[in-house]
Amino acid sequence: MPDGAHIADIADVPDVGSYLFTAEDAFTNEQELILVRCDDEPGIEGWVNNCTHENQRLDRGAGAAMRDGEIICPKHGSMFDACSGECDNGEAAGTTLPSVEITVADGSAFLTDDNYTYLHDGGVGDDDPSSTSHISF
């Protein structure tokens, strides 16, 4: 088993879409991160859940929109390669999603990035029992 927190079983990462989870960064800020399928080994990549063009969540809680191996920004339509994070079109052209180091072993994905500490599945605030609204801000 790798040194790192278990995020999800590989079977839980959708073939098209993303697996959303929350981690704490080095400054104790909660940060949304996503896992996506990729054709390159190890078959799963981890990214920060924000478009590089502006602060726009790629996965709003129902999985990131994807097409032909690319993650689509829901605001302007920029498309990021799921394996490299690179964007060559739209408002985010010439940028790359910030990566998150993960390790795939024994059918699971583990957060092995020293800059993050795993907190929980789902987005920021998804574990807050005081909120019953279906609307996120």
Score class of each variant (00 low, 15 high):
M1W: 05
P2S: 11
P2K: 09
P2W: 11
I7D: 12
A8F: 06
D9G: 15
A11Q: 15
D12Q: 15
V13R: 06
V13E: 07
P14M: 12
V16D: 09
Y19G: 07
L20W: 01
F21R: 01
T22P: 09
E24I: 03
E24H: 05
E24K: 14
A26W: 00
F27L: 10
N29R: 14
E30F: 05
Q31D: 05
I34Y: 00
V36T: 08
R37V: 02
D39A: 15
D39G: 13
D39I: 03
D39Y: 02
D40I: 04
P42M: 09
P42H: 08
I44C: 09
E45V: 02
V48Q: 10
V48I: 10
V48F: 03
N50L: 05
N50G: 00
C51P: 05
C51K: 06
T52Q: 14
H53E: 07
E54A: 15
N55I: 06
N55H: 12
D59P: 07
D59E: 11
R60F: 05
R60C: 11
G61Q: 09
A62T: 11
A62L: 11
G63C: 13
G63Y: 08
G63W: 06
A64V: 14
A64I: 06
A65I: 14
M66H: 09
M66L: 10
D68R: 12
E70F: 00
I71T: 05
I72M: 08
I72P: 04
I72L: 13
C73P: 05
K75A: 12
K75C: 05
K75P: 01
K75T: 06
G77N: 07
G77L: 02
S78A: 15
M79P: 03
M79T: 12
A82P: 07
C83Y: 01
C83R: 01
S84W: 00
G85I: 00
C87T: 00
G90Q: 09
G90N: 10
G90Y: 02
A93P: 01
G94P: 13
T95R: 13
T96D: 01
L97V: 04
P98Y: 02
V100I: 06
T103N: 11
G107T: 07
G107Y: 08
A109T: 06
A109P: 07
F110D: 02
F110M: 02
L111K: 05
T112L: 05
D113P: 08
D114C: 02
Y116P: 10
Y118V: 07
L119P: 10
L119G: 10
L119H: 12
H120C: 13
H120D: 15
D121Y: 04
D121W: 04
G123Q: 09
G123T: 09
G123F: 01
G125E: 11
D127L: 02
D128I: 02
D128T: 08
P129C: 03
P129E: 14
S130I: 03
F137T: 13
